[in-house]
Design a protein around this nucleic acid. Structure first.
Lengths: 210, 210
DNA sequence: TAGATTGTTAATCGATTAACAATC
DNA sequence: TAGATTGTTAATCGATTAACAATC
């Protein structure tokens, strides 16, 4: 298992490289050098070459990287040469937006089950799917083998939902609630917290926006 | 300017510490040790103490940190002891969700202007604000002194919108479009790309979700 | 006081960068 | 071939951790 030795920070950059390659492919580029990709992403070319070298040699000396070939390799490495069904819990403004977002589809994911606890939402159709009561979360996830979920419920309910998801076999959680989740080993959590990003920026903007 | 020496990675953790302290305060905690905070966040206590030491000594030996006091200090350091008006460009599903999101308010931000290019959206009211045509972006931002913006338009329009925002004086951009933006020095960009986070997780889940 | 925890230093660890031989 | 760029090694840089004196 050479995979487990690759630093997590490197893994986190692979989707960014893939996203850039998608863009390059769309622009009609067939070949790209690490120097050009680095310039586009605002990082060093050495970092790109080093990151990729963890998985093999995908380029040609003197030429660069074949865009489509490297795309395919990254897709394989990231295990998205398949479509992952994803569960969504919480159908407020944000949950609805996620359910209707088309951007997941061409990047390996499809929302396949949606849950909420509110009687006013249960039974409605959002993003083409019927909203199910959270009581049916366990059976549904186990039946469909869903391993990934997105949490879009209030912070006060997020930990409880996470516990249910994990109990139902979920191994990866994308958490939109502004709270740190407690999860057992082997469960991967990623956080989306736009306010935290804004606060990161205001540090540099100074008290008065300079 | 001691601030500029503090590593960016440290700055990025401060909002997470603040978020945890908000939670602790809500739980009624008055004092917390670096050890307990670290356990809650899943990091080391030494890291928390080291990070905070860049800005001063906020704790008491033998006791720990006063939750409210440390909160106030982080709020001051992050320059959110004021309310930042934020512009939102793009009122699709995601933009609407952001416009209606209440979570920004108690964390230092208020959406103060909303723009879209679609005639069907211009003039409608979203999140209590009238949607303005992008043509009025420049004048509006300059008049209000808005320095921060969120981009929620399709990837194909994001760079153009970013250029307009920067031209209008924006210094911080939270970009939801899955594309890397090209910006001049002094403009801060943060990215929100949920699909990238999901791809990060599928690397570890293996080809079959293990 | 005794016990506990901070703030800080020094050591360790890991990531990034520079440089270049290999090679297309 | 000559020119260009990769893949990789070694050096540098920076971040994390361990440890403990200071001190509440």
């Amino acid at each position: 298992m050479p995979a487990s030795e690759v630093p997590d920070i490197v893994i986190g950059r692979l989707p960014i490289y893939l996203r850039a390659l998608d863009y390059m492919a769309q622009e009609g580029r067939e070949i790209i050098s690490s120097r050009e990709l680095a310039s586009y992403l605002g990082i060093s070319s050495a970092q790109i070459r080093k990151d990729l070298s963890h998985f093999g040699g995908f380029g040609k000396q003197g030429t660069g990287y074949h865009v489509q070939y490297l795309r395919e390799q990254l897709i394989r490495i990231l295990n998205i040469d398949r479509e992952w069904p994803v569960a969504l819990v919480g159908v407020g403004h944000l949950g609805s937006a996620l359910a209707n977002y088309q951007g997941f589809l061409h990047r390996g994911f499809r929302i396949a089950a949606i849950f909420d606890s509110s009687p006013s939402k249960i039974g409605t159709v959002v993003g083409g799917l019927e909203v199910l009561p959270v009581e049916r979360l366990g059976e549904t996830l186990r039946a469909t083998g869903i391993k990934i979920a997105m949490i879009a419920v209030p912070a006060s309910a997020a930990q409880e939902v996470a516990d249910m998801l994990i109990e139902a076999g979920v191994r990866g959680i994308l958490n939109y609630a502004p709270i740190t989740l407690s999860v057992p080993d082997g469960v991967h959590v990623q956080y989306i917290d736009p306010a935290a990003h804004l606060q990161h920026m205001t540090y540099y903007l100074g008290r008065n926006g300079r």
